[in-house]
Design a protein around this nucleic acid. Sequence first.
DNA 1: GGATTACATCGACGGATATCAATCTACCTA
DNA 2: TAGGTAGATTGATATCCGTCGATGTAATCC
Lengths: 114, 114
Amino acid sequence: MVEHTTSMAASDPVSCCSPLDVEVLSEHDAVDIARVFAALSDPIRLRLLSLVASTGEVCSCDLEAPLERSQPTISHHTRILSEAGLITGEKRGRWMWWSVNTERLEQAARLLSA
Amino acid sequence: MVEHTTSMAASDPVSCCSPLDVEVLSEHDAVDIARVFAALSDPIRLRLLSLVASTGEVCSCDLEAPLERSQPTISHHTRILSEAGLITGEKRGRWMWWSVNTERLEQAARLLSA
DNA sequence: GGATTACATCGACGGATATCAATCTACCTA
DNA sequence: TAGGTAGATTGATATCCGTCGATGTAATCC
């Protein structure tokens, strides 16, 4: 995953604990990436994302019933997913339509593979 | 992402809010998957994972300094990553050696793409 | 055996988060 | 213009989570 710099194999059981000064993933980047995974770390949000992905476009009012959560709670979760860049909202009339930001998902996926 | 079942496009701005009874991602599966992403949702754990990934194998004592966290905190994070299946620990002598479970990472990555 | 070391566990504390009722805001319709 | 509706925001609450000091446990070294 993520970036490599150098690699010093320290497998000798006698000489341990030579401090790694290799800063592999920066603190700043880590905070950024963590925000995306935090958005994916809630079961309700995963099911919400799944619903949006499967139908292509869903309005908020269609989420309350299947997810069995109140309107403010749904609004809370769409906001978090939206701020993480995972879904995009478009207001049409009274309704808010949500769709999945596929590129952002792929981007997150790439962070986890090699 | 994840599984699809059927898909009913409801993009007509006049007729909204027909409740979707399509259960796309089950509640049980969502809880399972959320646990993995929750393990990835902390900056310290991401940097820890990155350190382990870059060196192949790291002992716990080599993590405290670069991550600037106490020994109990490091132990806490390795435990969470381990329980999520993302790293594997092996005790050799006094030292606990950690390595990345690549398959598990790839598995998580696949959940996010298509 | 006794001292030391690496790591786990416990207990406590502060901050984040999921949830909902109530309220506010914007938009549509009659 | 008045009433209704979709969704955001606010405030309150209960729970979860990251953190560390203190302590426990197992392995090593002298």
